[in-house]
Simulated scan of single mutants.
Amino acid sequence: MREARGLTQEGFAHDVGLHRTYVGSVERGERNVSLDAIWRLAEGLGTTPAAFFER
């Protein structure tokens, strides 16, 4: 979703208040993500948390 919107990891992470390496590890599936982070990521992408779980 982030790449489809033309956002860099660094810029996106800054916009949502998370660290670049955290966003990268989330995208690679290396982290268990908190609900707070899910909300931040979703809002930063202009979507809802539910969109992350749709197929």
Rank of each mutant, 00 (worst) to 15 (best):
33 V>C: 08
48 T>K: 08
30 E>Q: 14
12 F>R: 02
10 E>N: 02
38 I>L: 15
29 G>V: 08
41 L>K: 00
55 R>K: 14
6 G>P: 00
47 T>W: 00
40 R>Y: 12
17 G>P: 09
38 I>M: 14
29 G>M: 10
53 F>L: 13
42 A>Y: 06
51 A>D: 10
1 M>G: 09
13 A>F: 03
53 F>M: 08
34 S>D: 06
9 Q>P: 00
5 R>G: 06
5 R>L: 07
51 A>V: 07
8 T>H: 01
4 A>Q: 15
27 E>K: 11
20 R>T: 10
28 R>D: 01
37 A>Q: 08
43 E>I: 06
2 R>C: 13
16 V>K: 12
38 I>F: 12
37 A>H: 05
40 R>L: 14
30 E>V: 10
27 E>M: 10
23 V>Y: 09
9 Q>Y: 06
45 L>G: 00
38 I>V: 15
37 A>M: 08
31 R>H: 13
32 N>Q: 10
8 T>E: 00
20 R>K: 15
26 V>D: 00
15 D>C: 05
13 A>C: 09
1 M>P: 03
9 Q>K: 08
37 A>R: 10
3 E>D: 12
42 A>S: 11
35 L>E: 10
24 G>V: 02
42 A>G: 06
46 G>I: 07
55 R>Q: 12
35 L>Y: 13
18 L>E: 06
24 G>L: 02
37 A>S: 15
4 A>S: 15
52 F>L: 04
46 G>F: 06
28 R>F: 01
6 G>K: 09
43 E>C: 05
53 F>E: 04
32 N>T: 10
44 G>N: 03
37 A>G: 10
50 A>H: 12
